[in-house]
Design a protein around this nucleic acid. Structure first.
Lengths: 339, 339
DNA sequence: CGAAATTTTGCATACGCTTGCAAAAAGAGC
DNA sequence: GCTCTTTTTGCAAGCGTATGCAAAATTTCG
């Protein structure tokens, strides 16, 4: 196996100093056209490429962003990961992935590990942060952006959908559809997304002087969700509409309603979800749902992060991306409904 | 923001040399119990943690594995990513993710970028490698493992399912079910998985003196797949069974068959997939399919990779993991079929 | 208790690169 | 051509850690 080729070797071959080589590969540095040519020739002859790690050591810029993800089962996250990776790749950054099991203490460990790698920034997707950890990151000078979670912690930026308004719309939509018994199937209550969606939905009902006819908790877990649906519909006056806190759960709900309880969707029950994962548009479901605009969210996330990296003192940003209702076929559409 | 705490600072506080600090954090190094105690106290008082990058510089061990993934839409890959990340995390490694667009030249660029980070190994998921690139990696002393692709390149390890045998079983299964017109819906022909599955399936028919009644190419792309199904079934003698090269395509096929063409699955057509993605078991599909045992594949992938890292001269390994047929409800089950 | 064997420790160097500084080279202006 | 300004270049000092080597400390054991 060949030795690894260093800037020093290139320098010798090109007959210049090692600093000159470094400058050729540092955008904005001062080099004459002639030495640049000599260096580039020597470099490509030897197959030289700068060592990112060595560069990181002295410049403090590792070109790495740490990403913490809790679960990838939810189809929304692979999509986000892919887009995030592409967006960061375009800016010359790369993603170091860390899986956080849902256990409590895990996140602390994971974040410590991330910091060990001298990442320039951290994205926490669907993960909540203790204020202790947050200040640890700040002490290390590493900006943090929460993705799909919002939290009132000093100095922590967050990018979410406008969950409140999105869910509020759903409430209006179901009311306009003249549903009589409107239910809500909740996600894990520790998630800010769940709380905001519930608040928005209930607020819409509230405006009309209405209340939830039923409420169950699916915790964003498949089997828990199926149970919740069974409980919710095993009563004399079952709901005729249910807003589900996430698509993954909504799809399960539709399956249980149709194939286990023999109900028709949307004939007997209207179902509305949140996320707009790929499967929501599959012909078996055609789920009416609120779309999380992953592209926009990712773009905001990246710009927020880069800004924080470049401007160490910058104030944290909180972004709530518009989340439009996507009409498909799982919920009765009110006459003349436009939006 | 606080300064970053170095081994030197810990050394001063503990009244020892920097080397002593280093040794405390290097498993297997020689330190007395007394200095270890002093160092650990000083370290935790200051919140010291070794800098992975600096460590990588001198030891050549970055504790990073590069992962290249082409597309995450296929539900199989998020699952793999999650498991792979967890398995490597348990071994003290972390994953640096790179997305490879499907364009041709991209992979070269991406692999170069990976090597810049001094990763200790590379996993290529569903991506093919030119022998030129392969030797580049070998020159850099970085072992490569192909995941879900196999290729005859010197020195390159690969982990796949036993696609041939898995598909062969499907052939036997459909024949035993007394299907008359058996079709195959292919994936992208550049993929070894596609080729092996087709070969296995056709071989099974061959043994019985039968041939494919129809063949179309879905290229693993959703809209292409839907078209392929439409073409395949728009003829007087439509297939009564179709083996689809991947679940993602199989689910689309079921949707088109049922909701667009008004056919019953498995009444009119039996459908069998490959992968066993999460959605395959959803009540709307209950897809009979061949399971890729992600756990086993990942475990093999990790052990292969670690072995190659620790034993630089090691011979490449090729593993084909058993892929069992999972019976559900999308294909007619032959009487008395057991397996 | 003392010599030999063993363990622990600090020193110094290296890993591959960036960057401030001062010297050298190149341009500008007359 | 000569001085003054501007650009280019090399030198050398790190960045934070691991590690070979030799000295120091400790243990072993006759």
């Amino acid at each position: 196996m060949a030795e690894k080729v260093t800037a020093q070797m290139v320098a010798e071959r090109a007959g210049v100093s090692q600093s000159a080589v470094s400058r050729v590969f540092t955008p904005g540095a001062s080099v004459s056209a002639r030495t640049e040519k000599k260096v580039r020739e020597a470099a490509s002859a030897l197959g030289y490429r700068p060592n990112v790690l060595a560069r990181a050591m002295v410049s403090g810029r590792s070109r790495m962003i740490g990403l913490v993800v809790a679960y990838l089962e939810n189809q929304f996250y692979p999509e986000v990961l892919e887009k995030l990776s592409n967006a960061l790749q375009a800016e010359g950054y790369h993603i170091l992935v860390f899986m956080a099991s849902q256990e409590a203490g895990t996140l602390d460990t994971v974040v410590e590990e991330i910091l060990d790698y001298q990442v320039e920034g951290i994205v926490l997707a669907s993960v909540s942060l203790s204020s202790d950890l947050a200040s640890r990151c700040q002490a290390a000078g590493v900006p943090v952006v929460l993705f799909n979670r919002s939290q009132d912690i000093d100095g922590i930026s967050a990018v979410t959908s406008d969950n409140f308004t999105g869910a509020f719309q759903v409430g209006q939509f179901l009311l306009a559809g003249e549903h009589e018994r409107i239910a809500y199937l909740a996600g894990w209550e520790g998630a800010s997304t769940q709380r905001d969606r519930q608040r928005g939905f209930v607020a819409a009902l509230d405006v009309a002087g209405r209340r939830l006819h039923a409420w169950e908790d699916g915790r964003f877990e498949p089997s828990r969700t199926a149970d919740a649906v069974r409980i919710m519909f095993d009563r004399s006056s079952r709901p005729d509409a249910v807003f589900v806190a996430g698509d993954q759960m909504a799809l399960i709900a539709m399956d249980v309603l149709r194939h286990e309880l023999g109900l028709s969707v949307p004939g007997d029950v209207s179902v509305v979800g949140f996320d707009d994962v790929p499967a929501a548009s599959w012909l078996s479901y055609r789920l009416t749902t609120v779309r999380q605009q992953a592209d926009l969210m990712v773009a905001r996330c990246v710009s927020t992060l880069l800004r924080a990296i470049e401007t160490p003192g910058a104030a944290p940003e909180r972004h709530a991306i518009e989340a439009p209702l996507i009409l498909r076929a799982s919920a009765r559409i009110p006459q003349g409904w436009t939006q």
